[in-house]
């Protein structure tokens, strides 16, 4: 049967996730739009956690979905979509971080001094409000190297299991554990003095 193929969009509907993924894999843009609706916020959140600024996070989110769409036909349905797109997102964000590294360091140093958060005055620890502490934690996470940050974000913010993190980042479980341990220790060191017990 001859079929006419134009470049116009194909509009189809979706029901559930496997069906949604099947249709998205077949190039159904609407299905992909539904995937965006479903995962867009989570992806943005990961991107925002990974990126230094909001603008980069939006860019990474958009690019992640674009790449996912382009690679969708090759997506293996045995895997979870969010794991897959998280991987795209974190890779993009890591690349973005590396690109922005110099700029970010300059900004950070200007804001906190060359020593970073550890240079915060001691008396602040006693007055640190939850908001200030939160900000300090966020800054400390931002100071982590991108690989450490990715593990930290996926575990602490997204609460993925170690195996999910390993799958998402394409690293071994042992690597997940060691990176997570290092990330936690670094963050803790950075903000410990703001905690009640001094860390």
């Amino acid at each position: 049967m001859i079929q006419l193929v134009l470049l116009a969009a194909v509009e189809v509907l979706d029901e559930d996730d496997p069906e949604l993924l099947r249709r998205a894999r077949a190039g159904d843009r609407e299905a992909f739009g539904e995937l965006f609706t479903k995962y867009g916020r989570r992806v943005y959140r990961v991107a925002r956690r990974m990126c230094r600024n909001d603008e980069d996070a939006w860019d990474v989110t958009q690019e992640a979905f674009m790449r996912a769409m382009q690679a969708m036909p090759g997506f293996d349905p045995r895997y979870r979509f969010f794991t897959w797109i998280y991987r795209i997102t974190t890779n993009l964000a890591i690349n973005m971080s590396q690109k922005r590294k110099r700029h970010a360091e300059v900004m950070f140093d200007e804001e906190y001094g060359a020593e970073g958060l550890q240079a915060l005055p001691d008396d602040l620890s006693e007055q640190a409000s939850a908001g200030e502490l939160t900000r300090a934690i966020e800054e400390a996470v931002q100071k982590l190297s991108p690989p450490l940050r990715a593990v930290f974000v996926l575990r602490v913010d997204q609460q993925l299991s170690y195996s999910e993190i390993a799958s998402t980042l394409g690293i071994a479980m042992g690597t997940v554990m060691s990176r997570l341990n290092r990330a936690r220790n670094e963050v803790r060191r950075a903000v410990g003095h703001l905690l009640e017990d001094g860390g």
Binding site: F36, T37, G40, R41, R45, T134, R184
Partner: peptide
């Protein structure tokens, strides 16, 4: 407990984007 505080603060400190912003991104 302190580590839990750190991580809870970190998780809770996120500002969700507005619906309009998400639609715009879409």
């Amino acid at each position: 407990a302190s580590q839990s505080d750190i991580e809870n603060l970190y998780r809770g400190g996120f500002t969700e984007p507005s619906e309009a912003r998400m639609e715009s991104l879409g």
